[in-house]
């Protein structure tokens, strides 16, 4: 497939006004647009502090010394680049989709299985958009595909020019199926990230909320930031089914006879409860949550998410 197919021009145009900013202070090796906790050679003045023995005299503010006869050190804010880690759910449940695709669309492994635009396809589109945006602002982006044994495939974080194409190709070629272990996946991702990283987790989050809570707690504990992008098909959200038929689980849960109209009310209640729990866990950890409908385009919701984060960043750092 062509990598450009994952990033529609209208999505790019919608994302263009925004910059992905780390809500928290990001650490990076390169000078970038993100605030860094380290003060160093930079142009943006931060504050004064009294000189203490051991400080380098390079940063003494001599003008202040001339006026007040006191030694003060000028401190500057160092801007750095952002470390972003995309964690994409490649479990069997992500292969569900009810939106048809046009002929000639190659798609992913999930598309080929279902012949429809699946949640995994939508997650890939989101991941492609985020990675393109970050790479465009010289941030380092990495990818981890979550599978039954944790990260089953991944790409190290980099800001190289062909990084986006590598990410997209891996997403498209990755086999989808089985269950995921989100805790193990997060552990493995944390083990490979030395500094603070913005984790973008793309999943339907239909698994147990306890596992999600454990995974996010680890991220929070390590001081990382995270964005949870929940992706559900419209049929899953509305359950407009009028059949009485056996329902087969996509992750090997077995078969259940269901009178769709009869259980619709209770299903929607359960779904609302579940999503509320996921949102509550996410907010408790201080992370962002955004629910995507796989029938809608990526751009509007993603741009709304970035705008919200930018506003929060401005409010926190002025």
């Amino acid at each position: 497939m062509r990598a450009e197919e994952y990033l529609a021009p209208e999505t790019l145009s919608q994302l263009a006004p925004f910059e992905l900013r780390a809500k928290r202070i990001a650490e990076g090796f390169m000078g970038g647009m993100h605030r860094s906790p380290f003060q160093g050679p930079a142009v943006e003045f931060a504050s004064h502090r009294q000189y203490t023995a051991g400080d380098s005299t390079r940063h003494l503010d001599w003008k202040v010394f001339a006026r007040s006869d006191k030694l003060h050190i000028k401190e500057y804010r160092q801007e750095t680049n952002l470390e972003i880690m995309l964690l994409v759910d490649a479990s069997g449940s992500m292969t569900y989709g009810t939106l048809g695709v046009k002929g000639g669309w190659g798609g992913t492994d999930a598309t080929r299985q279902r012949g429809a635009w699946t949640k995994y396809d939508h997650a890939c589109a989101c991941a492609a958009a985020i990675s393109f945006l970050c790479l465009h602002q010289r941030d380092r982006v990495g990818l981890g595909i979550m599978g039954p044994d944790g990260i089953v495939a991944g790409i190290r974080r980099s800001s190289a020019r062909d990084q986006w194409r590598s990410i997209v190709q891996l997403l498209a070629q990755q086999a989808v199926g089985g269950k995921i272990d989100i805790v193990r996946s997060v552990d493995q991702a944390l083990s490979k990230s030395g500094g603070r990283v913005l984790f973008a987790i793309l999943s339907d989050f239909l698994g147990p909320t306890e596992q999600l809570r454990a995974a996010l707690s680890k991220l929070q504990h390590r001081g990382h930031d995270a964005i949870l992008l929940g992706i559900l098909d419209r049929q899953e959200q509305q359950f407009q089914l009028d059949v009485t038929a056996p329902f087969d689980g996509l992750e090997g849960e077995g078969r259940i006879d269901v009178d769709a109209r009869a259980v619709r009310k209770h299903y929607l209640a359960e779904l609302t409860t579940h999503l509320s729990a996921v949102r509550r866990i996410t907010h408790t950890c201080g992370f962002d949550w955004q629910l995507f409908d796989s029938h809608d385009s990526v751009g509007p919701l993603l741009s709304a998410l970035l705008a919200r984060r930018e506003n929060e960043t401005k409010g926190k750092f002025g």
């Binding site: 239909l206 329902f247 087969d248 996509l250 992750e251 077995g254």
Partner: peptide
């Protein structure tokens, strides 16, 4: 049969 993700 109907394939379904949110079986739980």
């Amino acid at each position: 049969p109907v394939a379904w993700a949110a079986m739980e």
